[in-house]
């Protein structure tokens, strides 16, 4: 008899879950995200593909200080420095800024190290899959063109 009451209590729990879920679906207690159709939004701190930022006048923010290249534990950043043309108050800029996304361990240290806030990982996107390793090596042109997470909304 005691066992039967226990069974009835258990049935009450499952039944209440069933009713609330069949009536209210995801407004009930179902938390499933049907992935290809629905996607979670990444938080603002989520680290995705790198991007480089531009100054207001359209020149790169990067001053080729090699901070990111030095701190990178995976040695995936390769900067070639050059002088800026004409008499810009800042003297250095990268001639080429190459990131090998296959070597990158997505630690975010380059973003922390950058004194100019020139490199960020807030693109909000994964590196798209490819069968060609060359596709994962991004140069400065590509890196400058990637939009930020907030800009894309």
């Amino acid at each position: 008899m005691k066992g039967l009451i226990g069974i009835l209590k258990g049935l009450k729990v499952t039944f209440s879950h069933f009713v609330s879920n069949i009536l209210f679906g995801k407004k009930g207690s179902i938390v499933t995200i049907e992935y290809p159709d629905e996607r979670l939004k990444y938080g603002p701190n989520w680290r995705g593909v790198h991007r480089l930022l531009l100054r207001d006048d359209g020149t790169p923010r990067c001053v080729a200080c090699y901070m990111c290249q030095t701190i990178c534990p995976a040695l995936c950043i390769k900067i070639t420095a050059t002088e800026r043309p004409n008499s810009h108050p800042i003297e250095k800029m990268p001639a080429e800024f190459i990131i090998d996304e296959l070597r990158c361990v997505v630690c975010g240290l380059c973003v922390e190290a950058c004194p100019e806030d020139a490199i960020r990982m807030d693109s909000g996107r994964h590196m798209p899959p490819s069968t060609d390793r060359g596709h994962f090596i991004l140069n400065s042109k590509v890196l400058h063109s990637i939009k930020g997470y907030q800009d894309r909304e």
């Binding site: 879920n21 069949i22 179902i30 049907e34």
Partner: peptide
């Protein structure tokens, strides 16, 4: 489907 709904799945 019912087992899913009972267990808060779809």
């Amino acid at each position: 489907r019912m087992s899913g709904l009972i267990q808060d799945r779809l």
